[in-house]
């Protein structure tokens, strides 16, 4: 199977994730879209590792996963706190920077 196909899937996933971040309002969904973009990047890394026949891409993919795990912890904590104080998980409501 052509390795390039994995790259197309990766690009597709990244685009879906990016559009989701830009258009969706629910913080949880936005967050999930961010995860989607991270994993699209992971897929691309692994694919390139396969194409080039070395392990460096796979190593980076593991790093990404670790960072993503940390990020999930911090991000979810923030979302939960915002939800508790504002009774809403909409990212548009949390626009204090503007006012």
């Amino acid at each position: 199977m052509n390795a390039a196909n994995y790259l197309y899937v990766s690009a597709l996933l990244f685009t879906i994730g990016a559009i989701g971040v830009v258009v969706r309002r629910n913080a949880i969904v936005v967050f999930m879209c961010v995860e989607l973009m991270l994993n699209a990047a992971n897929l691309a890394f692994v694919t390139f590792a396969r194409i080039n026949g070395n392990l460096e891409g796979q190593v980076v993919a593991f790093f990404t996963m670790v960072v993503a795990a940390c990020e999930v912890v911090v991000g979810l904590a923030i979302i939960v706190t915002i939800y508790r104080s504002r009774r809403s998980a909409s990212v548009d409501d949390a626009s204090l920077l503007k006012r």
Binding site: V21, V23, R25, V30, L96, L97, K98, R99
Partner: peptide, 14 residues
């Protein structure tokens, strides 16, 4: 350009 909406900032980054 400073709308205060996180999404719009994300879009500018994109």
């Amino acid at each position: 350009t400073q709308t205060g909406f996180v999404r719009s900032y994300a879009m500018w980054i994109l």
